[in-house]
């Protein structure tokens, strides 16, 4: 009878690296698309506002698991024999971008209107207004919720275990299949997730307090 041992723990920790890698992919991909979405949401062009709004509503209105299945089966329809990490990365990017887009839109909108008017007066173009006036201020406001959302990203990578991508949650299932000690195995899995997420939660709260000091 195999019992849960340090070997299993090391295996879990090694699998956690894939969780982190996937989180980084999702954050970078979702960040790029999310910024475009946020700018689209506050654009002067009505069609852009509508399109990015619709995208966000659709992604936020469907479970990540279903998006994951669509990416997984959709990509294979295209005749591509793709590894699970591509479907996982794609669906997490879609998911992350919709939420970050909406968070960042709020941050852009919370920059006072007078800043727009003042920068307009000194003759900055719209692109310059964003580049030099609005985005730097919005970014300051955006740090706490963005760091907080990273926790959601890390946690949601666990869903990719369902299509067979071996990250922390899947590794937990594999260990459980050989030890038949589900309680201790998944508690350790939860502890490792907690160790990755809790510092980010604390950091998010710290940034938020720091931001509110100036007010």
């Amino acid at each position: 009878m195999i019992t849960f041992s340090s070997t299993h723990l090391i295996y879990l920790i090694e699998a956690a690296r894939w969780t982190l890698l996937l989180s980084v992919i999702a954050f970078i991909g979702g960040g790029i698309v999310g910024l475009i979405l946020a700018l689209g949401r506050v654009s002067e062009i009505k069609a852009l506002r509508f399109l990015s709004g619709a995208y966000i509503q659709i992604i936020q209105g469907t479970p990540l698991l279903v998006v994951l299945f669509l990416a997984y089966f959709g990509l294979s329809i295209l005749g591509l024999d793709i590894p699970p990490i591509v479907a996982a990365g794609l669906s997490l990017t879609l998911y992350t971008s919709a939420f970050l887009g909406e968070i960042w839109r709020g941050c852009i909108l919370s920059v006072p209107k007078t800043q727009w008017e003042a920068s307009n007066c000194i003759g900055l173009s719209r692109a310059q207004q964003y580049r030099y006036v609005v985005l730097p201020q919005a970014m300051r406001i955006a740090i706490p919720p963005t760091v907080g959302f990273m926790v959601q990203i890390i946690k949601n990578t666990s869903i990719t275990s369902i299509i067979g991508f071996v990250e922390l949650a899947r590794a937990g299932q594999i260990v459980n299949n050989s030890t038949f000690q589900p309680f201790i195995t998944f508690v350790f899995v939860a502890i490792i997730y907690f160790a990755m997420c809790y510092p980010l939660s604390l950091a998010s709260r710290h940034f938020e307090r720091k931001l509110n000091v100036g007010k």
Partner: peptide, 23 residues
């Protein structure tokens, strides 16, 4: 609150469904 908010729902479900029977 902190434990639940910093661990994935999937793992929580596994602990309740697979873990509790072993207890």
């Amino acid at each position: 609150v902190e434990v639940i908010r910093n661990t994935p729902l999937l793992v929580q479900i596994f602990i309740v469904y697979f873990g509790l029977p072993s207890l």
